[in-house]
Design a protein around this nucleic acid. Structure first.
Lengths: 207, 207
DNA sequence: CGGCTACTATGACCGCTGTCATAGTCGACC
DNA sequence: GGTCGACTATGACAGCGGTCATAGTAGCCG
């Protein structure tokens, strides 16, 4: 959530993501997006001839890229990088936001996934690629910490799933408890995966 | 889900939950709910004088009770109850549904949480109590399996968070992979919490 | 200047939403 | 039968949704 002085088009995509993650897709109107972005209403059909569907999809894609970018920053912020540290940083972004701005917003990708009836199937695909865009850097970071590549992708899925669910519950309860809880509970499991050679395979094979 | 021959009121609540978990709250119209429930449109204002908000809240509450009820059934279905077995059963309900009916629906509580702009704050509270209603039996089941009571609630939160997130990702990707992945990855952690006396406290204190 | 392109500005259209108002039906009870 | 209550049936209303159509402006190029 950074620079506000970009082109109107970019501002509208950003505003769309902001509104979607607060209200959901259907409840967010295009006029509202334009107003929130201080952009002229006439620009909507000019920049997004594909209509609301295109705007929503771009907002979701933007959110995916944003999440991926954040992973790199979180890594840079850890002086001794561990999986649990990365996960804690990812969750901390949400606890911080909730402490500062209240529990008004969630993840735009989650909102789009839940609310993809209005926008056609393309929005669901956009959400899927957004999740993949996000999961990539997380898995990469895990391998960089010594997690076997086979498990890295699984653990990245676990981390993102858990985080999304915790965001959901935290928003519902208006309490960061779910976020802090999953960080504490999942941390040991994540760190245990580093440096284990065939131990990881053993666990996986135990099934 | 189950019995279709109940009173019209109950059918409407059930249909509302069904439609909400497919389309989201805002995208689901009241006329649509009545039609889906084969209920007369005039009954809407009669049974739900509180309007859409009341209907949505009751649907969410119903979903919470339903999830709680399912936990008991899952427990009964396990011949040797373990935390990982319970979690796997919870996830299997979703993989089964997705295999049978496609990835069209998610969790109604999640949908209501994301999309609570139209309905006022009461819907958010309904979602919070639904999560609590769900978490209760899960935590209780865990303590019954030997998990220390202090950790049981945390692990229940972890299980539900992870499951909700995995449902989300599975729906987006149209693939049950996230669900199966989190079951495999989380299983050992959950089972490790059974029967540990002060080991659990040690982990928690290590922080 | 003319012409072109990028962008902006409105206004209108149609469909759908939740909600209210009114009238109608049905069945039980005295 | 008469009356009351629960329930059903429509119709209308006001508002907002996305989208199309049309006209307008600004700036650059030749």
């Amino acid at each position: 959530m950074t620079q506000a002085r970009r082109g109107p088009r970019e501002r509208m995509v950003f505003s769309a993501a902001q509104l979607i993650r607060r209200q959901g897709v259907t409840a967010t109107g295009m006029r509202e997006v334009a107003a929130h972005a201080d952009a002229p209403r006439g620009s909507l059909q000019h920049y997004f001839p594909g209509g609301k569907e295109q705007l929503v999809n771009e907002a979701v894609a933007w959110a995916g890229r944003y999440a991926a970018r954040r992973v790199a920053r979180f890594l840079a912020g850890l002086d001794r990088p561990t999986p649990s540290g990365l996960f804690a940083a990812m969750a901390a972004q949400w606890t911080d936001e909730y402490a500062a701005d209240g529990f008004t917003a969630g993840c735009p990708v989650a909102a789009a996934t839940v609310d993809c009836a209005t926008s056609g199937d393309s929005t669901r695909e956009a959400a899927a690629t957004a999740f993949a865009t996000w999961r990539g850097p997380v898995a990469e970071a895990l391998t960089g910490m010594g997690v076997p590549p086979v498990r890295a992708d699984s653990l990245a899925t676990l981390m993102i799933s858990t985080l999304e669910g915790a965001i959901l519950m935290a928003r519902a309860e208006r309490d960061v408890r779910p976020l802090t809880t999953v960080v504490e509970e999942l941390g040991p499991l994540l760190d245990a995966a580093t440096g284990e050679g065939r131990a990881g395979e053993a666990i996986a094979a135990a099934d």
